[in-house]
């Protein structure tokens, strides 16, 4: 591999999405989609109470209230990768996310990607290695991880 001279993003570049509150609705959208995807009949299907949409159930599990499903922030990170790299972000590569702090109702979440390295490979691809994360409005990280995106040369 050798350093690319035609990369759109250079190492060190950082891209952030606008802050989003993790509302009760956002949490429920993800709850509702789970059974909906499994049934796959063109309609929405709800599921029994979860720690993501039912305060009473969440408290019974020892939580102070509902928390977001980690896949929401993973999908927000994926969305930012699609914004940055297009369909290549859904092709060859990797995405790893770890949920290091619970995200509570109405907590502000900022999605971010930082380019760690940019290299060309022998398959005529530019390989972006990335640090990815979500943080709150105090800069405290909530979800952390890394990604690799392979973008074919035009």
């Amino acid at each position: 591999m050798s350093a690319s001279i035609s990369a759109r993003y250079q190492a060190g570049a950082e891209v952030r999405l606008a802050p989003r509150p993790m509302t009760r609705e956002r949490m429920r959208w993800y709850v509702d989609i789970q059974e909906t995807v499994q049934v796959d009949d063109g309609r929405i299907h709800a599921q029994p109470p979860t720690i993501h949409d039912d305060d009473t159930y969440a408290k019974k599990q020892g939580l102070p209230g509902i928390i977001s499903d980690g896949m929401i922030t993973t999908n927000w990170i994926h969305g930012l990768l699609i914004d940055m790299f297009g369909p290549a972000a859904a092709g060859t590569g990797r995405l790893r996310t770890k949920y290091i702090r619970p995200i509570y109702e109405d907590q502000i979440v900022i999605t971010a990607v930082k380019v760690v390295s940019v290299l060309d490979n022998e398959r005529k691809e530019t390989v972006y290695t990335l640090e990815v994360w979500c943080e709150d409005d105090q800069g405290q990280k909530l979800t952390v991880g890394d990604a690799q995106v392979h973008q074919r040369h035009a």
């Binding site: 859904a90 092709g91 770890k98």
Partner: peptide, 17 residues
């Protein structure tokens, strides 16, 4: 009896789905 907590997602992508 207990609700599981998702801790880590780690996907290696070989080709688009």
């Amino acid at each position: 009896p207990t609700a599981r907590i998702h801790y880590q997602y780690d996907a290696t992508l070989h080709a688009p789905i």
